[in-house]
Design a binder for these strands. Sequence first.
RNA 1: UGACCUAUGGUGUAACGGUAGCACACCGGAUUUUGAUUCCGUUUGUUAAGGUUCGAAUCCUUAUAGGUCAACCA
Length: 556
Amino acid sequence: MEQKNNHFIEEIIEQDIREGKHGGRIHTRFPPEPNGYLHIGHAKSICLNFGLTQKYNGKTNLRFDDTNPVTEDVEFVESIQEDIKWLGFDWEDRLYYASDYFPQLYEFALQLIKEGKAYVDDLNSEEVAALKGSPTEPGKPSPYRDRTVEENLKLFQEMKEGKYKEGEKTLRAKIDLASPNMHMRDPILYRILFTPHHRTGTQWCIYPMYDFAHGQSDAIEGITHSICTLEFENHRPLYDWFIHELKLFPSRQIEFARLNLSYTVMSKRKLLQLVKENIVSSWDDPRMPSIAGFRRRGYTPESIRNFATMVGVARRENVIDLSLLEFAIRDDLNKKATRVMVVLHPILLKIINLPEDHREDLEIDNNPEDETAGKHIMSFSNMCYIESEDFMMQPPPKYHRLSPGEMVRLKGAYIVKCESVELNTDGSIKTILCSYVANSKSGNDQSGIKVKSVIHWVDAKSCSDAEVRLYDRLFRVEDPNDQQGDFKDYINPDSLITIPNAKIENFLKTDTAIGKSYQFLRHGYFCMDRDSSEAKVVFNKTVGLKDSYQKSNAKN
RNA sequence: UGACCUAUGGUGUAACGGUAGCACACCGGAUUUUGAUUCCGUUUGUUAAGGUUCGAAUCCUUAUAGGUCAACCA
């Protein structure tokens, strides 16, 4: 899916190339914190960063911004790498960690102290906050702001040696307490933390703040275009201050608007809450907007990359319609997915003018969109299951499916006519009794009969059972963040409906592998879930087919 | 009521002072052995008011609305 017009970041890059900035070199990075799984918003950023360097022949680093050992974990380091690879991007040999730079960052801190531009503060967090002022009032200096260089050097050394407790001391930059930008009011550079780090263990007990690590990490790696989301815009003057004071490589930070998707939440905190409180089964629950969730749901990397292109890159806040993502996956799977027949809510149909022992093999197209996809065999007898909603005793107007006296085609098989029904004692339908039109065989129809509808079916004598999990949007409201009360009050109670005994054609039992996508004819796209076993196959609904009949019904 | 940022159909996103276009959604129609796909078409928009200009979505001013910032989180 090519985009014709450049977005604003491409414009900046092309101008830099024209002007020969950094010798025309383009180098970006994707800098996740390993404290959760990646979500679709990260996917946008990954596609942006790696996509840009593919387009302009540059390089993209993967760098873990792991400056807070309290929340970070190797589980996330691993899942993040897996998700980026799955999306189809490669950082080659450029896997870095901000923690790799701890020694150098420490030297940077010493440099600032020696120049009188940083000081050790004894105030606790409440006291610091109290003196910081507010956006409309200037801050006040800490009583420790004017310590001598020697004293600061000694105290910072002692902080590093573990002589002080967590929270007892911090290192702060000495910038401007009256700045209208709160980030310039003597930001904290280092804090004391005794939690072991997932990579450096107990080697350090002082850790740089993100603001003191991120920009310098970019500079160390020679990142030319440091792309991040809008909320870091106010931090840029601080990063530029560090670059200037420490005389570092001048990476240029460019901010863009993060992705928001309707009917879901995107904050890591809220996603973590859904997992921790068992509202979803795991980080890769198919209802989660995590990359792992979409993967398990049956989304393809191509569809997500196309989606990322279609949403565009700009600087205004946005909420993308879920329907655009659904379009992207339907568009991709329509071209790729093998068509099979699965009956979700079966009702028995018996063909009365066929012998009890009739058996016939029919050839079914694997994909009418792809001539090279071939065919598969489906067996046919005098008994089959059809979808219960494809039959009505008293059909409403414009109902094209089966009802008494009416004809439909069984997809890939014959035209059948409903002659009567057999009822259970409670009045419900036990069996639909039909005659079939012998010379109407699919592909060789001599009957001349035109039917209004073609319905799917499976052979009742050879089909198997499968569990089918029908997924729908996780939230009932478009913007769960913008509601009264807790966002969890707006969970869609029907976001998962499990059908324990759907009827699947035999081919599907033997052909499938975990993660493989199919189109269940007239239903939607499904893929085999990792919960499948020999005894029971499980399918996840990726997305439904568009359904103009249901839509017109909903209107009436 | 501080600083910074943003404002184009329902949702996104283009138009680089010169015909407001594209995608999704929506609504019609054609085709169809998936009420799918495909194809065709309709409707819908420059936040407001001034200014500059032959000409403004675009430049300037003001207003309005929204976002970000006062973690020892990132």
